[in-house]
Write a protein that binds this DNA or RNA. Structure first.
Length: 657
DNA sequence: TGCGGATCCCTTTTT
DNA sequence: GGGATCCGCA
């Protein structure tokens, strides 16, 4: 997006901001001290504005370490700093940045003692959190007849929502899961025990990272002051997707200087489901007296026919900061709305169009297919493979969530966190003839030895399980003998140990073994095992396994398949939005909830605004849907807001071709 | 106590 | 199509 042309420098060598930015962007970039709210419409140069502001501050002599840039993904913030460095110089790479969660991790590592974990802590991901909850859930037995306890995933999201929305558990149950009202006391007990267990294990889940950072700042004024002094300028990207705790953290860090710039677009708020509150944007001027508000409304991404459609899509939304995007670029054809004979016809339509565009010289890299939920692309993936089009899939199941990767990681975790019950259970139950009961017994015995993972070598165990455990003992002894920073060697030992187990358990073990090889390649880059483990939890590779991690993935021309959530902030020449079918998009689960429906409207808006030159929205006619046990046949209700003459409406049936 | 098979459920988005 | 759960066998 930033053209590295010859005209961006002034005669004195400084960056020619006036020339490179429009008046609104220029004002935001050169804004001095105090609170600033930038409402940035889709494609209005938000990233550009943040990038130039970083460069400008550093150019003006602000020490880069005193600038804090919080953004949504680490990739996004690294990209901004990289671009700022290209604009100015390498100093921009010194800017502190990352996600709220990785920032919290960095700060809390420094002050672990103050939050009650003198030896540090382990970050657990959603799956670990669910497993821990499940252990507790099982202790409570199967509850009453007719009143089953919620499943682990439901419990986890219940607890998470209560934390992130700062509401009581009872309110969340009442609002979102009224059918579990009768079990609310049991659920509360599970929640409390979950908190206790996390404390005992020195576990922090994603929510705890934010909560603990907030508590640290609230309860330890000397820490807060030190940090507030350190970060002179704070910038927050995607502010519409922050929750209450994150907004409070920003306030605490910014006070009393309040040199805080937040950038966001209330029309693109798509994370309410995890507690984000787009009202944070609306409230920002109330939190910070004297806030300057700047709106960026000129769109540099999409051609006018696409903007006409996206403006129509978002028009019915009840948003507070209204804006109307416009572009000065002319031309472009109407976006297409394509009904297809069925699901497979939809996939074939996409493949046909992609083949056509490729023959016209458009690289696959400039094309994306976007969808509401990860499984919506399954049929398309088959067709793409058949047609021989390489693609990378982003979002949905992650590499690091697959069982074989979690298995390998569990073996590493017990070496540095020998009290980690979850990882021990996982490791032990991979051994033949060891199930839940034996795993628990052995774990307690190791714990009693009190000397880390090597306790397994000396613990007194019942003779029955001994022969099968021998290999595991050898592994632990071998890992223990390695120097502490030999991260990749540790991984290699685990792989050697795990390979026979993998071969026995999975039909597709060759593919999974390749995944583990890739994991080892990632480990090569680390000097500390705990850094590697934290990063795998906080910023796991976002692409599905088997893809994208290998070095050749960068050079090969591939098309992108992505959930809309993972497509946020990105853009392509050509964008297909598939499954624009009522019941799929919006999801049938949102149909009864007005707030959820509004969020889905913003979601389709985010999807459509990713397109630069060509936009296709497709939906299959008449699909039998298992989840609702009904036939879905209405196009997405969001399309009703788009006047007919703004789109080129077509029908596609491969049988008629 | 572990494990494999059968059967019933529900099936979003992510740090 | 995958997880949770139950049951019967080793």
């Amino acid at each position: 997006m930033i053209e590295l042309g010859t005209n961006q420098r002034l005669p004195d060598g400084g960056i020619d901001y006036r020339r490179m930015l429009n008046p609104a962007q220029y004002e935001a970039v050169t804004f001095g001290k105090g609170p600033l709210l930038v409402i940035a419409g889709a494609g209005s140069g938000k990233t550009r504005t943040l990038t130039y502001r970083v460069a400008r501050l550093v150019e003006a002599g602000v020490a880069p370490q005193t600038i804090l840039l919080l953004s949504f993904t680490r990739k996004a913030s690294q990209e901004m700093l990289r671009r700022a460095s290209l604009l100015l110089d390498q100093r921009c790479q010194e800017v502190a940045g990352g996600t709220f969660h990785s920032f919290a991790n960095a700060i809390l590592r420094r002050y672990a003692g103050k939050i009650g974990f003198p030896q540090g802590f382990t970050i657990i991901d959603r799956a670990d959190s669910e497993d821990l909850i499940n252990l507790i859930r099982k202790e409570f037995g199967s509850a009453d007849e007719g009143h089953p306890l919620p499943r682990k995933a439901t419990l986890a999201s219940l607890f998470s929502r209560a934390v992130n929305k700062n509401e009581s558990l009872e309110d969340i149950i009442y609002e979102e899961y009224p059918h579990f009202s009768a079990q609310k006391d049991l659920i509360r007990q599970i929640w409390q025990l979950y908190g206790t267990r996390k404390q005992e294990h020195h576990f922090l889940d994603y929510d705890d990272l934010l909560v603990c950072l907030h508590r640290l700042l609230k309860e330890h004024e000397e820490v807060r002051e030190r940090l507030a002094l350190q970060y002179e300028y704070i910038m927050v990207d995607e502010y519409q997707d922050t929750n209450r705790i994150q907004a409070d953290i920003v306030s605490l860090l910014a006070s009393p200087r309040n040199n805080v710039m937040v950038v966001g677009d209330d029309a693109q708020s798509i994370y309410a489901f995890r507690g984000a509150n787009y009202k944070n944007i609306i409230d920002f001027p109330n939190r910070f007296a004297g806030t300057r508000i700047i709106k960026l409304e000129e769109n540099y991404r999409s051609l006018q026919p696409i903007l006409d459609v996206t403006n129509a899509l978002i028009a019915p939304a009840a948003e507070k900061y209204s804006k109307c995007l416009f572009t000065q670029r002319g031309g472009g054809s109407l976006p297409a709305l394509v009904a297809t004979a069925g699901e497979n016809a939809q996939s074939r339509f996409i493949v046909r169009e992609i083949a056509r565009m490729r023959s016209q010289g458009l690289p696959l890299q400039r094309i994306a297919v976007l969808f509401r939920a990860s499984f919506h692309s399954f049929d398309l993936e088959l067709e793409l493979n058949r047609a021989g089009f390489p693609f990378v899939k982003v979002g949905g199941f992650k590499f690091s969530e697959s069982a074989h990767i979690k298995d390998v990681i569990a073996h590493l975790k017990i070496m540095i966190a020998p009290r980690d019950r979850l990882s021990w259970y996982r490791v032990l139950q991979l051994v033949k003839k060891i199930g839940p009961q034996s795993a628990q017994r052995i774990f307690e015995a190791v714990l009693a030895e009190g000397k880390g993972a090597t306790g397994l070598l000396t613990a007194k165990l019942k003779s029955k399980s001994k022969p099968e455990l021998e290999r595991l003992k050898e592994l632990i002894a071998a890992m223990d003998a390695l120097p502490p920073h030999a991260v990749a060697q540790q991984g290699a030992l685990v792989l050697k140990y795990y390979l026979p187990i993998l071969q026995e358990q999975y039909d597709d073990h060759p593919r999974r073994a390749r995944d583990i090889e890739q994991l080892l390649a990632i480990m090569e880059r680390y000097e500390r095992l705990d850094d590697f483990l934290s990063d795998m939890t906080l910023e796991p590779p976002n692409t599905s396994f088997g893809e994208g991690l290998a070095a050749d993935a960068i050079t090969e021309d591939r098309l992108t398949l992505s959930t809309i959530h993972s497509a946020k902030g990105l853009e392509w020449d050509t964008v297909f939005i598939i499954w624009a079918l009522d019941g799929r998009f919006p999801s049938y689960q949102s149909m009864e909830k007005p707030d959820a429906l509004e969020e889905e409207r913003r979601l389709i808006y985010v999807a459509a605004t990713r397109a630069q030159h060509h936009l296709f929205i497709t939906y299959p006619q008449e699909i039998y849907d298992r989840a609702t046990q009904s036939v879905l046949y209405e196009p997405s209700r969001f399309l009703e807001a788009v006047p007919q003459d703004l789109m080129d409406c077509r029908f596609f049936d491969p049988r008629n071709m």
